[in-house]
């Protein structure tokens, strides 16, 4: 019994010695230390440490196998090789994950570049469209302005032509009137000569000739009346004021005319109404009614719509 107890003690002592020897061998194994250091650096790396947990676990298992089974020289190199490969696999796997994430970031950057370019192109297109719209508006405004200028110029040309035509007609009327007055003066002179030849007093010729010489005629042209109307237009009112100023106590003879066309009776009535309208206007302007004589001539060859005011001492 005592011998058996002694044998058990020897067996326990031998087992403890073997475990301590194995632990001592693992502790002094430079390969284990190297691989353990590499794996610890990987596990504690801020970037790589969490990217390959499965591979790191396998490397830990390989290091444990090295400690547990790599005691024999024959198997030591084998387990060192396996552990070394596992540590390298863990590093490669973590770095591969890093590269894949970097590639994802580059893909996002690629998309952002395309988006930025398309956004910039859209902005440029919008600005170009706005520029063309403004340019179109400016062109339209310029066209409107030129059109308005052309209309004004055309209107002015037409007015100028009308004024020229009116002036031409008034000149012709004045010339005819002057011719008539010249004929009248000629007739008066001939009448005076006849009276002188027939023995009449020289006072008669003296009284007639100066009257013809002193007569002043003011023509109221077509602008005085509207066609078919006898109411005075503004242009005629201005002429009325001129006649009133020239009258100054002298006698005024108003001869009014109507255009050709229509019946002679209607033209006579219209010319009479026009003469009376001028008379009323002159009275309104201060000319005494008794010094005004009106004549509705009707139509007269060579005379158009209007009137002639003859101012004389008689």
């Amino acid at each position: 019994m005592i011998a058996a107890i002694r044998r058990q003690r020897w067996v326990i002592a031998a087992l403890l010695g073997a475990v301590c020897a194995g632990a001592w061998a693992a502790k002094d194994d430079p390969d284990y230390d190297r691989l353990r250091g590499e794996l610890n650096r990987l596990a504690s790396d801020r970037t790589l440490g969490t990217l390959a947990p499965a591979e790191i676990a396998l490397a830990e298992q390989a290091l444990n196998n090295l400690v547990e089974f790599g005691g024999k020289r024959k198997l030591h190199d084998h387990y060192v090789f396996l552990a070394d490969q596992r540590v390298k696999i863990a590093y490669a796997a973590a770095q591969a994950v890093t590269q894949e994430r970097k590639l994802q970031a580059l893909d996002r950057e690629h998309d952002q570049i395309l988006i930025a370019a398309s956004r910039r192109d859209a902005e440029q297109a919008r600005m170009e469209l706005e520029r063309q719209r403004i340019q179109s508006l400016a062109q339209q405004e310029e066209a409107d302005r030129l059109r308005a200028e052309a209309d004004d110029a055309r209107t002015q040309t037409e007015q100028t032509a009308k004024q020229a035509e009116t002036a031409k007609k008034q000149a012709a009327q004045a010339r005819k009137l002057a011719d008539a007055q010249a004929r009248e003066a000629e007739l008066a002179r001939k009448e005076a000569a006849l009276l002188a030849a027939s023995g009449a007093g020289p006072a008669a010729s003296k009284s007639t000739a100066p009257a013809a010489v002193k007569a002043v005629s003011i023509v109221l042209g077509e602008s005085t009346f509207a066609p078919g109307q006898f109411a005075l237009k503004p242009a005629g009112s201005a002429q009325i004021a001129k006649i009133a100023a020239a009258a100054g106590g002298k006698s005024v003879r108003i001869e009014a005319y109507a255009n050709d066309g229509g019946s002679a009776k209607a033209n006579a009535t219209l010319s009479q109404q026009r003469a009376h309208a001028i008379r009323d206007a002159l009275i309104g302007a201060g000319v005494p009614a008794k010094s005004i004589v009106v004549v509705g001539v009707g139509t007269k060859p060579g005379a158009s719509r209007g009137a002639v005011a003859s101012i004389s001492d008689h």
Binding site: E55, H78, F81, L82, Q85, R86, K88, I89, A92, A93, Q95, A96, Q99
Partner: peptide, 16 residues
Amino acid sequence: DEAQVAGVLAQARARL
């Protein structure tokens, strides 16, 4: 066993 682990390492390095 060594060939199997070496093959895995070759795969990881190829992927990287």
